[in-house]
Amino acid sequence: MTKKTKKLRRNESVFYADTLVLLLPLAVLAVYRYGLGALCRILSCMLVAVLCEIIGSLLMKCQRDVSDCSALFIGAATALMLPANIPYLIAFSGVSFAVLAVKLPLGGTQSAPFVPTAAGFAFMTLCWSDKVFGYPIIGGAIDSVNGLSLSHMLSLGTSIRPNYANIFDVLTGNYSGPSGAGCIIVLLAGSIYLCLRHRKSVFNILGFLLSCSIMALLFPRISSNYTHLISLLMELCSGVLIFSAVFFVTDPATSPSRPSHRFMYGIFTGIVCMVMRYFSSFEESTCFGVLIANAAWPAIQIRITKIKKKKQIAPRTSSAVKGDAQNG
C-alpha cells in the first residue's frame, strides 16, 4: 500500500468517525422523541451494515477494513433518515442494498462512484414508498396515525402559518418527519463542526445550500403571505435536504478534490436535487438527485478541466506569437 493510499484511507476513517460523532446528537433527539424503538432501529441497522460488510468481503474475497467506520455510518444514517416506526425488514434491506449492491461491488469506501446510503434510501423509496414516508406523530402512539410532514405539505402545495412558534418547531424538527434528520439547528451546528474538521467540505455545503436556496426563492411551490421566505424555510427544512448537504454532498469518495470544483459540484448537486423534488412523484427525492449528480459529475469535471486547459494554453500561444513578431 502506497503512502498516498494510506493517507487517503486514514482521512476517510477520520471523516466517517466525525460523521458518526455528528450523528450522535441526532440519535439522542430521535430517542427523546420516539422512544427506545428508534434506538433499537439505529443499533440494529449499524449491526446489519457491519455484518453485510464482513459477509460481502468474504464472498468477494477482498480485504475490507471495517474499522473505517463507513459501514457504521451507513447503518446509522439510514436509520435516522427513515421514520421511527419503519419495519425492521425494510430498514435492513436498505442497509444491505447500500453495502452489498453499491459499496462493495463498486470499489469500496474509497472509490464507490455513488453515495451508498443515498442509493439504499432510493431503493427503499422505490420499493416501499408508503412505509418510507409514513411518518408517525410526535408524542402520539408510534404506530397509530401518520402525521403530516413538511415535504408532504410541499408536494400538496400547502404552507405553514408563518409565526414564531411554527418557525421554531420547524427549526427544531418538532413535526412529523424522519426520525433523526429533521432537527435543522443540530444539523447546522454539525455542519460547522464538519467544516472546521475538514475545511474543504465547506465549499460543498455552501454551494449546495446556495443553489437550493436560490431555487426555492425563485420557484416556490406554495402560496402564502410571504411566499418566497416561507418557501425557502420549508424547502430547506423539509425531508432530508440539510442532512444530505452535511453527509452526502461532502462524501470524500464522490466529491472532487479542488475547492473550486467542490463548490461547483455542490451547486450542481443542489440544482439537480431541487429539480428532482419539484418533478418527482415521491414527496422526498433528494437522494435521487444526489445519485444523478454522482453519475454526471465526472463527465462535467472532464469538460471543466479541458476548458481550463484551453484557457491556460491560449494566452501562452498569443504571447509567444507576439514575442516572435517583436524579435522577427
Binding site: 434491506s93 449492491a101 461491488p105 431503493f123 422505490l126 420499493c127 416501499w128
Partner: peptide
Amino acid sequence: PISGLSMPFGGFIMLGFSAA
C-alpha cells in the same frame, strides 16, 4: 415483498446479481 423489482431498475439489479 419487494415491489420495486417489478420496475425496470429491479430488472437491472436482478441481471447484475445473476451475472455475479
